[in-house]
Design a protein around this nucleic acid. Sequence first.
DNA 1: TATTGTTATACTCTATAACTATA
DNA 2: TATAGTTATAGAGTATAACAATA
Lengths: 174, 174
Amino acid sequence: MPSPGPGARQAMRPRSSAPASSPKARAIADQGIEEVDTRYLESLIGYNARRAALAVIEVFLERMAPYGLKPVDFSTLSLITHNPGITARQLCHTLGLLPPNMVGMVSAFERRGLVERRAHPTDRRAQGLYLTEAGQTLMTQAEQTASALEQDVAHKLTAQQQKTLMGLLQKIYL
Amino acid sequence: MPSPGPGARQAMRPRSSAPASSPKARAIADQGIEEVDTRYLESLIGYNARRAALAVIEVFLERMAPYGLKPVDFSTLSLITHNPGITARQLCHTLGLLPPNMVGMVSAFERRGLVERRAHPTDRRAQGLYLTEAGQTLMTQAEQTASALEQDVAHKLTAQQQKTLMGLLQKIYL
DNA sequence: TATTGTTATACTCTATAACTATA
DNA sequence: TATAGTTATAGAGTATAACAATA
């Protein structure tokens, strides 16, 4: 899979319209390229998936800024929301993050009063993670914002198409 | 959109199977979380798109390693392949990269003997980028590898489903 | 001996500011 | 004045090694 760097908040954005199937995307050798032919890249699933993800992330960053949540913060807190008592190790495993990078994030959540670490019931090495009341309030709003946001980004797709899209994507990564 | 960090080569990978629709994904409070409930995240397009992209990237990195190409390298060279004479500015614009980060990449391509910078026909500030013969040989192989790779990653999807998937993804980012 | 959480640190990728030469 | 390319550098994100406490 190719494409734009992983980074989200790109100052410079890919161009909007592409002649994905138009043979007019021609190079006029003597005057340089007039319009860039991106048809090959657009035939690759990885490229398309990445571009779509970046498009959503861009809007995500804007609308989640008021909550002070970046994508990774949001997905982590969302998992804690729906899995109270989850451990850092389980979060790392589920989201594909590395433990050393999780520590600081959870500590930051604690400092912000969003998350509590409590003793794990059966394993004294581990700690269960729970949302505080403030954390619950924040995440209720944040998840509503996230769901609404995705509707906006996918406004060109019908509800059925969105379902189809998710199903197809999951066949790739699950 | 949430999820795993942008980085590609993750040492630790998300778990393989998810009970996306199974209500059995329950927390057994007194013994910690048994199985992580990821249903909410899996209802988000951005999350799914990112996860799918990462799944493809993972395989991409493995199979492109012999060519010494990372995803961004590949997409850049692919655009030069199909748009001989393209400028760095056009590459940046198309792929969402920033000029300062493009310079080093192109210079590295030149040092490897894959790309040539030639004078632009009409704009003396710009330079047209072209593949050398070695570059063409490499990219012919690399693009074949990329196409084959995606077939493997998307083996659970029929040709029609792959087409549908691309179309739906493009409706999001185009 | 293996695992959870942690610290410190290195590496990669992405972003910003400022300069040059042309337009 | 604006743009293409460049340099240097800052910043965010991700990765590796090593340790303490517990299993």
